[in-house]
Each structure stands twice: as structure tokens, then as C-alpha cells.
């Protein structure tokens, strides 16, 4: 009886964990939004995530079954029968070294392409290097964004025609874009959860980040690195426009930025 109780106790929790995990997407506790990434690289990251998840679930089930079986048989072993006196098995050790080793190496090497695509220039899409839309400067506790004047390129230093916005990053949708990420004070992290993109903003460094929003829309932009008491307040929006609207928006923004108020007077 006691033996059964404990067996069930150790059985129920992995079963429960698996059930809850299986229902996670349905209960909307999984990936944000509808669970589908809003960027192409996000889709690849999700694919890798699910691949590891599947491998892990199989290993999890396997080890839990082995453990439970071991518990069940070991606790029910008749008194008169002595425990199995074994110091180990060389062959078994080799097997359970080599097989997981191979799987782990596979996982490791399978990941490299996506990482290279995200972070290494030569492996990322060509547009991601040329289509530089803005400089994002993180500060306590907001995102200050600088765009070039429409028709001009973004320069490293602020230019007289530059446009500024706060907590709103406007980009054209459907094409890779690149931003320069800076920090004005402490360390922050540029995190687009629905696009699966994250990059720390390190004081003193200017880090290029590229991403692509598949569809026009608004996406959350938050800070993922502790930056002080207002860390949680660094909520902003990434707004992806259809390309032609984007041009218009930029022109409108320029007009607003250099507004002298006289038009309203009339």
C-alpha cells in the first residue's frame, strides 16, 4: 500500500507536467499572441525550440519511466532476495555516454545556422545590412529613437534633419531592417517577444540588430535586462507599416518635428 502510494506520487507529477505542457498552447500560456512568430527568424527559432522540446520530452518520459520502474521493482523486492550487487557495467556506461553525446552534438551543430543568420553579417540577409532605419537609444526608462531625414542615410552622429520619437519604433513591414542599438546610461536589452528578437544594449557599444516583421501591425517592445527600479516600465511599441505608408509616415513625422506652430494660427 505504502509502496503503491509513493509510486503513484512519483508517477502523477511527470504525467501532470506532460498534460499541462501539452495544453499550454491551448490555454494561451505558450508563445505570446497566437503562438506563431511574427518574423521569419522567429519561425526558425520556434522550430529549434520545438525540436529541442521533442527530444527533451522523449528523454524526460524515458528517464521517468526508467526511474519509476526502478522504484517500483526495487521497493517490491522480496526481503529474502538480496539487492543486486553490481558496481556498474562498462558497456552500459559507454552506451549512455555515446548516444546522448551524439544527440547533444547534433543539437549543438543544428543550431549554428540560425545563430549565424541572426548575428553574423556574412550569413544574414543582404537587406539586413543595407536597410538601416533607426538608432535606438535605451535610457532609464524609455526608448529614444532617432530616424534619418526622409531620403537620407542614418549617420552615426545626430544630424540637423534627424527625427526623433520615444517608445515608438516605426519600420517598414515585410523586409529585413537594421537598427543601431545604444544605451545612454546603464545596460538594457532590446526585446521583441513576438518577433523572438533580443539584444542587450551595452553602454559604450553600438550594436547593430536586424529583424523583420512579416506583417504590418503593432508589436510589443520591452526591456529584458535589469536597468533599475523602472525596468518593467520600459514598454514600447514596434510599429510596422506597409512600405508605401511607411514613406508617408516618415514624411509626416518630419513635418511634425519641424512644426513652427504658425499653420495652426491661421
Amino acid at each position: 500500500m505504502k509502496r503503491l502510494c509513493w509510486f503513484l506520487f512519483f508517477l502523477i507529477w511527470p504525467v501532470l507536467a506532460l498534460i499541462v505542457s501539452a495544453f499550454t498552447p491551448r490555454w494561451n500560456w505558450g508563445f505570446p499572441g497566437d503562438g506563431v512568430s511574427d518574423s521569419p527568424i522567429g519561425a526558425e527559432i520556434d522550430h529549434l525550440f520545438y525540436l529541442i522540446l521533442i527530444i527533451c520530452v522523449i528523454v524526460f518520459i524515458g528517464t521517468q519511466i526508467a526511474l519509476l520502474y526502478a522504484i517500483w521493482t526495487a521497493s517490491g523486492r522480496p526481503k529474502e532476495k538480496r539487492a543486486w550487487h553490481s558496481h556498474g557495467n562498462h558497456k552500459l556506461e559507454l552506451i549512455w555516454t555515446i548516444i546522448p553525446g551524439a544527440i547533444l552534438l547534433f543539437i549543438a551543430f543544428y543550431q549554428m545556422r540560425v545563430w549565424a543568420e541572426f548575428r553574423i553579417d556574412s550569413a544574414s540577409p543582404e537587406k539586413a545590412q543595407t536597410n538601416i532605419v533607426a538608432e535606438v537609444s535605451a535610457r532609464q526608462f524609455e526608448w529614444r529613437i532617432r530616424y534619418p531625414e526622409p531620403g537620407k542615410k542614418l549617420e552615426k552622429k545626430p544630424q540637423p534633419g534627424d527625427m526623433y520619437s520615444v517608445n515608438e519604433l516605426h519600420i517598414p513591414a515585410g523586409t529585413p531592417v537594421r537598427i543601431y542599438l545604444r544605451s545612454l546610461d546603464v545596460q538594457h536589452s532590446f526585446f521583441l517577444p513576438t518577433l523572438r528578437v533580443k539584444q542587450d544594449a551595452v553602454p559604450g557599444l553600438v550594436i547593430p540588430v536586424w529583424f523583420e516583421a512579416k506583417k504590418p501591425g503593432e508589436y510589443p517592445l520591452v526591456c529584458a535586462e535589469l536597468c533599475g527600479w523602472g525596468h518593467y516600465k520600459m514598454g514600447a511599441k514596434l510599429i510596422a507599416h506597409p512600405p508605401e505608408e511607411y514613406e508617408q509616415y516618415m514624411k509626416k513625422l518630419h513635418q511634425e518635428q519641424y512644426d513652427d506652430g504658425y499653420a495652426k494660427k491661421k
Binding site: 526558425e44 527559432i45 525550440f49 529541442i52 543550431q111 545563430w115 533580443k198 529584458a224
Partner: peptide
């Protein structure tokens, strides 16, 4: 393992 895999870590880092 999820976190060790760099691309997945891009997303789940610091979550």
C-alpha cells in the same frame, strides 16, 4: 539545453 542552444536563448534569455 534550451538555454544552451544560442538561437533559442535569443528568445528565452532573461525570461
Amino acid at each position: 539545453i534550451f538555454m544552451a542552444a544560442v538561437p533559442v536563448d535569443i528568445y528565452i534569455h532573461d525570461t
